[in-house]
Amino acid sequence: MRIRALVVRITRQFLRDKRTLALLFLAPLLILSLTKLVFDGNTVSPEIGLVGPTAALSEKLEEQQASITLFDSFDAADKALHDGDLDAIIQIVDGKPDITLEGSDPSVSRSTQLVLQKALQSGAQDLAPTVHYLYGGPDMASFDSFGPVLIGFFSFFFVFLLAGVSFLRERTSGTLERLLATPIRRSEIVLGYLAGFGIFTLIQASLIAWYSVQVLGMSMSGNIVNMLLINLLLSLTALTLGTLLSSFASSEFQIIQFIPIIIVPQAFFSGLFNLDAMNPVLQKLSYIMPLYYGADAMRGIMIRGEGIGDIQLDIYVLAGLSIIFALLNVVALKKHRRM
């Protein structure tokens, strides 16, 4: 009864606040689309300058879709490299290829080196291995690999921000004090918030899932119901954590200050970046981060087609964290009414 009243109220507030609705529903779609555009473009063909008589090499390089410019002297090529017209220069010194890379962007250097390597090795075609993929395939772009992590990240980030700010506002506007002067239980307030926000996070999760698979064409090998479940659990964790932390903030600005402390480290540890190079002790930090479990499950479902059995640990951890944060919320409200 009282929980329902809270849910109705939260829903009405949301529907009146068009900007917040847009933040919740459209912002994640916008950022996902932008990320796709940035990371999923066509493969870049490196600009390579050749010096001297290297006709055979030039042919092979063009097979690898590099664009070739011929130079008479190394100095002329070097000037073009300085002007930013070239990514690499190749000349033959003592019968061996000598390569100068522009080098300021590691990803360009790497793709240039890859092209050169392929071109120089292509003589020995009999030894070319046949490649099989366990998951994904030769067409899988890097966006397909970290897209699932991003989906989880956005569900988490926007819900965390909204829940934190709304609950804070409840405190600073005096409505929390007034609310606690009614016979509502502290647990009913927390449950009301969970249910009220839960409706909107469920809509958000469905929208993001539909958009990333159907519109952005992200690779999806698993079941969309599992994906929704993980997204919802992740949002609930964000919701309970956001409201809990808002007890420690005294203004909207202080909620924003939680972003570099709570949100950004999770982005680093959630699998957006490969952590294998990190100190193994520090790697363990990811085990305390909710987003790590969400991202792990999302990747499992979308890339490796994992079923509910494979992701159950992630489900338990996320559900457990939500419950713990919610209970802590009920305790934190004691600060305002001691019964």
């Binding site: 109220r9 009405r12 507030q13 009146r16 606040d17 506007s173 005096g174 409505t175 004090e177 007034r178 609310l179 002067a181 016979p183």
Partner: peptide
Amino acid sequence: QTFGYMAQSDALYQEL
């Protein structure tokens, strides 16, 4: 449940 309370600050939801 037994008392009605009017706080010093107007505890109203602006959007409603």
